[in-house]
Measured scan of single mutants.
Amino acid sequence: HNLTITQGKLFFHYNPKLCLSEIHKMEEVSGTKGRQERNDIALKTNGDQASCENELLKFSYIRTSFDKILLRWEPYWPPDFRDLLGFMLFYKEAPYQNVTEFDGQDACGSNSWTVVDIDPPLRSNDPKSQNHPGWLMRGLKPWTQYAIFVKTLVTFSDERRTYGAKSDIIYVQTDATNPSVPLDPISVSNSSSQIILKWKPPSDPNGNITHYLVFWERQAEDSELFELDYCLKGLKLPSRTWSPPFESEDSQKHNQSEYEDSAGECCSCPKTDSQILKELEESSFRKTFEDYLHNVVFVPRKTSSGTGAEDPRPSRKRRSLGDVGNVTVAVPTVAAFPNTSSTSVPTSPEEHRPFEKVVNKESLVISGLRHFTGYRIELQACNQDTPEERCSVAAYVSARTMPEAKADDIVGPVTHEIFENNVVHLMWQEPKEPNGLIVLYEVSYRRYGDEELHLCVSRKHFALERGCRLRGLSPGNYSVRIRATSLAGNGSWTEPTYFYVTDYLDVPSNIA
């Protein structure tokens, strides 16, 4: 807008934040220059609390790290170098490059900038070799853009010569660093050979998330399962459950009422301010606690030095998902009996873990797994792929695949051998790939016309006998059925096997 004052003059007093240069501009645009008398524009009460600059400061050096910015700028000295009290560095987070010096300023003089007072450097006698002032900004957020400017702080001049310097606002972004852990990993099994893994992005990506790394490792069953005799009275049979499938998407929606109208769909109840505040506090606490764990609990591995020492970490090797089922080394339970199943799973520490690289999504279907087997899954978020990966501390989750139908069934015939004193040795093959492992066998036998009897055969007993022995049988026709019990439950009964026990007292003698 054009402003013209045809008559009258300007009068400025007691404006401590208004620089004289701005008042002189007002004289020019209003056409009143030359009308004012000496005392109409006070030299001592206008701009006496402001830094009124008329020179431009330029930054000469900028260096960044993930949490620091090192700045240096060209030296500046007023005509009387004693008038320079120091520099004021202003900075704040700036997602967009549209910041002005006066953003967030209120009537009390406060604003949204963080201000650092910096002492002037030592003055050199040689004007050509003056030290460049600077400042190291610490405690910054990774991968965050900051708006920065600097200006001088000078003393009051009796001659009211307006001098000083100020830089333009520059924008500097800190470097990326390792992201925080992925949030809320959930693993479920939808079949006997697959596990579905879902997660949420890290709360602090500290860069642009480029991919996720998912490692999985087959877990050995508890050692007590191999040692305890679950045929003993009072000892509860062990059981394991597989990871249940995901709930429906509708039930997972946030901010939804727990109660549904019987007449149909209901609208979600909005969260109160107290609920939102509580969630923010919980989120802040979780982030602080995660940072504490990362800094205190997890110790970084030592990389190899120039002395030739090897990095103890196993090298990563990509495998196809079809090879995942046989990740671990199978060892027989008892070496003397080769027909026992290889369900003991000690994992070799030198073995390469299978892994998958996930790009542009937060889910993965891990296939080719062994049925009813526990897996430990390790999830890392990465925001750099080359020249070397920059990934987060791992988040861990466990899951067990679903049982395989008929995996616990005894394959092959049940054979028998009759000894003296009416002892019958029953023999059968253990299931080759049971659900988890076989903890015991149930032997059901009966003599024709009598009630059915049951015998429990422990895992250890089966390994020693290759089956079991029935003792003290009365003469007669017998039928026997056997079924295995694994961590997933009972298998199917075998087809009945028949044998006849004679009275050993009636056996004919070869003595003449």
Rank of each mutant, 00 (worst) to 15 (best):
S243E: 05
S284D: 10
P245H: 11
L228K: 03
E265M: 08
G368K: 12
A220G: 15
D222M: 10
C382F: 01
N435G: 03
N422T: 11
S251L: 08
V329S: 07
N435W: 02
P387S: 07
R286W: 04
L225A: 08
V324W: 04
T303Q: 08
F285D: 02
K236F: 04
N383P: 01
P431M: 02
A309Y: 09
E420Y: 14
F499P: 01
K302R: 07
T288A: 04
E420L: 09
E310G: 14
S344K: 10
N295H: 02
R370T: 14
G234A: 08
R286A: 03
S305M: 12
Y448H: 13
T333N: 09
G264W: 08
T343I: 07
T272D: 06
V457M: 06
T303A: 10
Y375C: 03
D506G: 14
R466M: 13
D323W: 12
S320I: 11
C267H: 06
P434D: 00
E227A: 10
M402P: 09
Q252N: 02
R459Q: 13
E465C: 10
Y500C: 14
S274M: 02
R313D: 15
Q252S: 10
I482G: 01
S458W: 05
N421W: 14
R376P: 02
K357A: 15
E356H: 12
V327L: 10
R469P: 04
S363Y: 10
Y396C: 09
R390T: 04
Y498C: 06
E227Y: 06
E282Y: 15
F372L: 05
V359T: 07
S283Y: 14
N422R: 09
V443Q: 00
D503K: 04
S251V: 15
Y504I: 06
E258N: 15
N360K: 15
L440C: 04
D273K: 11
L505K: 09
F289D: 05
P346L: 06
E442H: 05
V393G: 01
I482V: 09
V345Q: 11
T288C: 15
A394C: 08
S248V: 10
F226S: 05
V358R: 12
K271F: 06
R481T: 03
L470V: 13
N326A: 09
L455C: 14
G467D: 01
G472K: 07
T241E: 06
G207L: 00
S223Y: 13
S223H: 07
P238N: 07
L455F: 11
H294N: 03
R240A: 00
R481N: 12
D408W: 06
T210S: 02
T303L: 05
E224G: 08
Y500T: 09
S344W: 12
P413K: 09
H416V: 11
R286V: 03
R301P: 00
Y448T: 14
E404K: 14
I438R: 01
T303W: 11
S248P: 12
G264A: 11
E260H: 12
P387D: 04
S251F: 11
S492N: 03
S479R: 06
I377W: 05
K460H: 08
R319H: 12
V297H: 03
T415A: 08
Y230Q: 12
N339M: 04
E221M: 10
G306I: 10
P354L: 12
L455W: 06
D250G: 05
Y441Q: 02
V423G: 15
H416G: 09
S315T: 09
C231A: 01
Q219F: 11
R218A: 05
R301N: 04
K236E: 02
K287S: 03
R319V: 05
E265N: 15
S268Q: 07
H211C: 04
T288W: 05
D385G: 13
K233N: 05
C231S: 01
I410G: 05
G368H: 07
S320E: 14
E260I: 09
A488N: 02
P403R: 04
W216R: 10
L379N: 03
R316Y: 13
G234N: 10
E356Q: 10
D409S: 14
A407W: 06
P238M: 04
C231V: 01
V414L: 10
Y445V: 12
A463I: 09
A394T: 08
M427C: 14
Q219C: 07
Q219T: 04
S367Q: 10
S262T: 11
L437C: 13
Y441T: 03
D385I: 07
G491F: 03
N255G: 13
V443H: 00
W493C: 01
V214G: 11
E389S: 08
K406G: 08
V480R: 02
H454L: 05
A463C: 08
V414D: 01
V423Q: 14
K357P: 08
H416F: 12
D250M: 10
G489V: 04
S392E: 00
E224S: 14
H416M: 14
L235A: 04
L487G: 03
D450W: 09
R353E: 11
D408V: 03
A395G: 11
V345L: 12
Y498E: 12
L437V: 10
E430F: 11
E351V: 11
P245M: 11
D291Y: 03
Q219W: 07
S262N: 06
S458R: 09
E420R: 04
E249T: 14
C266T: 11
Q275Y: 04
R466Q: 05
G472T: 07
T288D: 02
A336R: 15
E281A: 09
W493P: 04
T502R: 12
G234I: 14
Q256H: 12
N383V: 08
N422F: 03
G436P: 15
V480C: 09
L455Y: 11
V296P: 01
N295K: 12
E217G: 11
V393R: 00
W242Q: 14
L455R: 10
Q429M: 10
L280R: 10
A463D: 08
D229C: 09
A309K: 10
D229W: 12
L379D: 01
S283T: 11
Y445T: 06
D229H: 07
Q256I: 09
G436T: 14
H294T: 02
R446H: 07
V457C: 08
F215D: 11
Y292M: 03
F462D: 03
R240K: 09
Q380N: 11
F226H: 07
D261R: 03
R240N: 10
R301M: 01
L369C: 03
E217P: 14
D311Y: 15
K361V: 05
Y441W: 00
E217K: 02
L235V: 10
H294A: 12
H425C: 04
H416Y: 12
R481D: 00
G412Q: 12
E452T: 06
F298W: 03
V414C: 04
G476T: 01
T401V: 09
N295S: 08
S283P: 01
S223F: 13
K460V: 15
S251D: 13
V214T: 08
P244H: 15
T340E: 13
S367M: 14
T373C: 04
R459C: 14
V501D: 03
V327E: 07
A336H: 10
S283V: 10
P431N: 09
A381S: 13
V424E: 10
V345H: 09
E351F: 06
E247K: 15
G322K: 15
Y500H: 10
S257Y: 14
S203T: 09
S243H: 12
E221P: 06
R471Y: 11
N383E: 01
T373L: 07
S257T: 07
F298N: 03
D323A: 09
K271L: 08
A395D: 09
Q429T: 10
S203V: 13
L440F: 11
T502C: 07
L280A: 15
P354Q: 11
T502V: 06
D250E: 14
K361M: 10
V297D: 02
E362P: 08
R483M: 13
G467L: 07
F337C: 08
N339R: 09
N208L: 06
R447M: 04
N339D: 12
P270I: 05
P314I: 02
E388T: 09
S223I: 08
D222V: 11
G436E: 15
E389F: 15
L470Q: 01
I482Y: 01
I366L: 11
E404G: 10
V327T: 13
R313T: 14
A335Q: 09
I366V: 12
S304I: 09
E433W: 11
K361W: 08
R318F: 15
E260S: 08
G325M: 10
L237R: 08
L487V: 07
V501K: 08
R376W: 05
V329L: 07
K406I: 05
E404S: 08
E217F: 03
V214H: 01
V423T: 11
R353M: 13
R466D: 11
S239Y: 15
N339V: 10
S203P: 05
G489S: 08
N339T: 12
A381I: 00
L505I: 05
E356R: 09
V345M: 10
T401D: 00
S243F: 12
I276R: 05
D250P: 07
S479V: 09
H461K: 11
F499M: 15
M402G: 01
G306Y: 06
G374N: 08
C391A: 01
E495K: 14
P332M: 12
G449C: 11
Y375M: 13
F337T: 12
R483T: 02
D222E: 08
L505C: 04
T494Y: 04
Q275L: 06
E495S: 14
